[in-house]
Design a protein around this nucleic acid. Sequence first.
DNA 1: GCAAGGTC
Length: 860
Amino acid sequence: MAGGGGGGRAIRVLNVAEKPSVAKTVSGILSRNQGLRMREGRSRYNKVFEFNYTIQGQPCQMLFTSVTGHLMEIEFEGRYRKWHACDPVDLFQAPIQKHVPEDKLDIRKTLEEEARKCQWLVLWLDCDREGENIAFEVVEVCSNVNSRLNIWRARFSSLIEREIHQAAQQLVRPNQLFSDAVDVRQEIDLRIGASFTRFQTMLLKDAFVFNFSTDGRNLVLSYGPCQFPTLGFVVERYWEIQAHEPEEFWKIQCSHTTDEGTATFNWIRGHLFDYTCAVLLYEMCVQEPVATVTKVRQQERLKYPPHPLNTIELEKRASRYFRMSSEQTMKIAEDLYQSGFISYPRTETDSFSARTDLHILVQEQQEHPVWGPYAQRLLDPSSGLWRNPSGGGHDDKAHPPIHPTKFSPGQSGWSEDHRKLYELVVRHYLACVSQPAVGAETTVEIDIAGEMFSALGRTIVARNYLEVYRFDSWGGSLIPNYTFGQQFTPTSLTLDSGTTRPPPLLSEADLLDCMDKGEALVMGYDDMGYELWKPYLRSMMEEDMKAVSVGNKRKAEVLATCLQQMKACFLDARLNKVKLFQALEIFFDRTNRTGGDEQHNIGELVRRCDVCEDSDLVLRKKPCRNAIWLPGSISEAAVTTTVCNVCTPGPIFKIQFTFRRLEIPPDFSVHHLGCVGGCDDIMRELMEISASAHRNFSSVPARGRGTTASSRNNSPNNQPQSTCSFCHQTGHSSSDCYSLTSQSRSAQSQGGNSHNGDSLIPCSTCGSPCLLKTANTENNRGRKFYSCQTQGCKFFVCWEDSVPTTTTSRRGDRGRGGGANGSDVRFVSATGDPVSGRSCFICGDPSHFANVCPNRGIRN
DNA sequence: GCAAGGTC
């Protein structure tokens, strides 16, 4: 810095921190608690500290006070503040003023009084963009009463002695560009938020009956350019879950145990959605169960430690390892920062600058009873454990990655969360400067009756960073040694079922609270075809803000473009307001409809559902998010007027079910008047049978396969049928009924394969020629079928004598939860219909399928 | 009666 001249008379320096605690801590450090005095300021929380200090040889009488975050707010001028006094679209260019709000006036007064006495102003605001903006707010207030102030900025990333003294001795000028970026953000947020909020509130609040509490305040349907896209995430995920139809799949699992360990072999085909196919292939494996090793590959693998820690990673990891919310994490991190134990916790940076002394930070941790010995080894060059950390490529140019700044074996005042978070920061740091873990991996592939399986074994050769980073694990699994060509009989060979699952619901509690109105609004804007509710808008703005902060774009230019786009969007939304009405109508009652209508809960008929073509699409008061999964063996279900006299709370109307004969055990009736309230044992049993359609031939010697049924499988239901929450019909979910608005689902069909005589047919999944193989199963011995042999291909397969001219894929390649990709595999007849008339492969009885065979699991 | 970002 340009020094203040040396040695002469003391000058008075006003120092301002972002919050009272920082003013106190920094004053304590700079004064070394020698001659430190504290007096009241005008505001209750913001005290004034006084002490003497020398900056670059210049004696200074330091006055140290604080603000509490932003000192100023922006607001529309005059009449634009009144909701009905202007058109909301005017808010895109209405004049704006920055002012100190009522509750901050006494802080301003303190600043003014102190600034009048001083020659210098030193800004100790947090070193991020918001902090820089607050710095300029302080400058404005202080300069107004003292235009001769020499204005300086202290840059610091942690509240530790070394760094604070360094910041005081190396003052710089405040950065106008950082502050400009925040001005842009504030103005855009206000204009977009206020215009859309007023527009949608005035449009909708009197037109609908909103059934949520407003705590006595006026109802406001707020639109926040930050909050709304986040809500959009939750809603979008919710729609995905609604649209998900659980589907049962089948896979062959094989394991082999010897004295050396157990190898679990996974089927290279993954899993199949067609039961018949899976059973056929499984049967072939069971009848010729000898496995031949076709490949053994050994490889060294490295598992690298994480990058240095930034805020997002800290939040993610604290959530994953400790189930700590981001709010709690940041609160604790802020605490640890303020007491000097860790560096500034709000940073985007995930690489250390070359200037950082990484060894000093490790030295400090050597005394720790738990990880101290690791730190010592890390510093011992002969251990070879040290590694310069690799960066993640982000740098906010303001702060280093989050790292420990002071050693602590655990403070007495710390909560469990403080201890955990400090430990995470320390262990993460130590991990970053450590060598990666080294593993030896063995991949073994085997062939059983033409089907390929593979198993992975891993031994960890050197744990390295994993020794200190207890949060990461790298499972080792010792498998037996195999040699190429070796043959063995598997210990178990099972046909397992599973069900695809929807993705989990995003659970930001506060967002879930406003799901109702939020979902309706998101749906409305989505129907207009806008991405107003997507995070894209916000991230574009973030990019622009960054450009402003580094001087690549000018403040005025970014403001103009962004507001122009948003204004166009706003005008368009207003033209399409009917879409908002339509969406809201799905969730809420119109106010112009009188109550007391008994038909209300059922809803008014809109039209026939074009997905199931069987039920009515009705306008419901509110969609129900609850569903009861019924067994897939149900072919028909109708609600009766019979009320269950056992289950509560009643009334629960019984349902007349019709089951598919082949999919329930022979001793069950196909007709059943059932209750879904929990009292119905028959329903429960049928659901369990669906769930345990799984056979386990543990140990399959070539002869005499005597086994018992396994109950090990806990996989979910057998193709549960969804119940539409709008029309209450089974067979489609409410998302299908959403096709009324936007989400239309179309069955996808795949192109046909023509078959001429004896030429091989191409696989409908990967296109390679399918091999003609001979079935070797009890029921189909000698019958020929086509099978794709491409590794891992979920192949098309069909009987030689029924090659179809056209095949239909089950919902094609739509992505689904649970990793299933929906590739289809099924036997089809020449007409493309599924082959019927097959019989149980266990007992040969054509009256049922093997999944409900009374003899399942028993073979002779 | 609007937003989001500071902080108490």
